[in-house]
């Protein structure tokens, strides 16, 4: 039994109006009618949550509404998990979000799909500290660990976690949009497998396409130039320099309220986060895609994106000893001008 398209709209409407009981009744009702639990997770909740993200990005929904909707989806997932509890017939898999990653729902969906397919799943949740994950792996000895990463900015920490898991002999399956839409960052960081969606990940595990022991990962030779390390270390003073210069070059900023000023500082910090991730991974598109996305987001909210290009130029000027970062910023400026 498949799911009608309007079910997603129906569900979205309920989570968007904080109708927790309505949303849960909807999914449990469909479950009662014979819709498979996996389909409810992947064909109703997952697409609805993608829409939630889009509505927030477009400025249609507030942060509060987005968080509220996600919290209800978490409970809907929990309700499905309580209603359908197959006995584990397969071996053990650990599922966790990487350190600093709070977007737990996509990873939670993977955990539930694996559980439905008979795996013995340990779901550790959002923002799992590396040492805790490693202790857990030693204690439980799973066949694999699935690591979710929703934002590329978490990739350096995801890499540390991934390497630590492999060092204790557990192969890593990477998932989530943070690893790139085609998984190219997962490959670059030496993950043993990558899957774009929860069901693809489940298929990959079922077909035994992960090695039983991790293969030694590739080294990121470009890190030898220390641009990533130095940028991370000097980030504070570099950003302070840009924040001081911005009002001189962008006069409207002189009349900013403290809140507007803080907002600009946040945006700049965000640019710095993506810049440092792009330096770490050595991928230009990681940065330019982000710049384009930010400019689109600002347009959607009726905010001029001129300040983005300006901030990129100021960062470019500030980072004279960072050829790789300057290249990224130059490409980013082109992307911002084109957006």
């Amino acid at each position: 039994m498949s799911v009608a398209v309007d079910v997603v709209d129906d569900y979205l409407e309920k989570v968007g109006t904080a109708d927790e009981f309505g949303a849960i009744d909807l999914v449990l009702g469909l479950l009662g009618e014979g819709v498979p639990a996996e389909s409810l997770l992947l064909d109703v909740i997952a697409p609805a949550q993608r829409r939630v993200g889009e509505l927030w990005a477009a400025g249609t929904w507030s942060v509060a509404r987005e968080h509220g909707a996600t919290a209800i989806s978490e409970r809907a997932v929990a309700a499905i998990a309580t209603a359908v509890r197959p006995r584990p017939t397969r071996s053990r898999i650990t599922v966790a979000c990487t350190d600093g990653e709070y977007h737990a729902l996509p990873t939670r969906l993977l955990a539930e799909v694996l559980r439905l397919r008979g795996w013995h799943v340990d779901f550790l949740g959002a923002n799992v500290p590396g040492p805790h994950l490693i202790t857990h792996l030693h204690q439980t000895g799973p066949d694999a660990v699935a690591i979710g990463c929703a934002l590329p900015t978490r990739l350096p920490r995801a890499h540390a976690t991934l390497t630590a898991c492999q060092a204790v002999g557990i192969p890593v399956l990477a998932g989530g949009s943070g690893f790139g839409f085609d998984g190219r960052f997962a490959a670059k960081l030496g993950a043993d497998g990558w899957a774009p969606t929860a069901d693809a990940a489940a298929d990959l595990l079922e077909q035994g396409r992960l090695p039983s022991f991790p293969t030694p990962g590739a080294t990121l030779a470009h890190l030898a130039d220390e641009e990533y390390t130095l940028f991370t270390k000097r980030r504070g003073e570099i950003l302070a320099g840009v924040m001081a210069e911005l009002p001189r070059r962008f006069p409207p900023m002189r009349d900013y309220t403290q809140a507007q000023f803080d907002h600009t500082a946040d945006d700049l910090a965000h640019i710095a986060d993506f810049l440092s991730a792009a330096l770490y991974i050595d991928d230009t598109r990681l940065f330019t895609d982000f710049v384009t996305w930010t400019c689109d987001l600002l347009h959607a909210r009726g905010v001029p994106s001129r300040s983005v290009a300006l901030a990129l130029r100021l960062l470019h000027d500030e980072l004279h000893d960072f050829p790789r970062a300057r290249h990224l910023l130059a490409e980013g400026t082109l992307a911002a001008d084109g957006a």
Partner: peptide, 30 residues
């Protein structure tokens, strides 16, 4: 942004103010 600043109760209050209407779990998470 500078890495040396204390978060402080004012920032916590500002952040909390943006959470009106959210379920308790979402507030804590945010």
């Amino acid at each position: 942004p500078t890495g040396r600043e204390m978060y402080g109760s004012d920032r916590l209050k500002t952040a909390l103010a943006t959470c009106a209407g959210m379920p308790a779990t979402a507030v804590v998470e945010r």
